[in-house]
C-alpha cells in the first residue's frame, strides 16, 4: 500500500471542507421559504398591505441570500482553485 502523500491529504481534507461549507447554502433556502410562507399568510390576512410586505421581504431575502453565497465561494475555491496545494 502506498503511503499517503501531503498533497493527497490536503486534497482529501479540502473535499471534506468543501462539503461542510456547502451546508451553509441550506439555511437561507429554508429561511427564505419560511419567510415566503409567512408573507403569504400576512397577505391573506391583510391584502391591502401586499406591496409593503413584498418590499420588506425582498430586502430581507436578498440580504439573507448572500450568506449562502459565502459558503458556496469557499467550497468552490477549495475544489477548483485550492490555494493550500501551492504551499507544499
Amino acid at each position: 500500500m502506498e503511503p499517503i502523500t501531503g498533497r493527497a491529504l490536503i486534497l482529501a481534507a479540502s473535499a471534506i471542507g468543501a462539503g461542510l461549507a456547502m451546508i451553509a447554502g441550506i439555511g437561507p433556502g429554508i429561511g427564505q421559504g419560511y419567510a415566503a410562507g409567512k408573507g403569504a399568510e400576512g397577505v391573506g390576512r391583510q391584502p391591502e398591505a401586499q406591496g409593503d410586505i413584498v418590499r420588506t421581504m425582498l430586502l430581507g431575502a436578498a440580504v439573507a441570500e448572500t450568506t449562502g453565497i459565502y459558503g458556496l465561494i469557499i467550497a468552490l475555491i477549495l475544489l477548483f482553485a485550492n490555494p493550500l496545494v501551492g504551499l507544499l
Binding site: G33, Y34, A36, G37, G39, G42, V43, I53, V54, A61
Partner: peptide, 12 residues
C-alpha cells in the same frame, strides 16, 4: 405571496 402558505414555502 399570492399562493397558499405551504405552496409558497416550497416555491420560494
Amino acid at each position: 405571496v399570492t399562493m397558499n402558505p405551504r405552496r409558497a414555502q416550497a416555491y420560494a
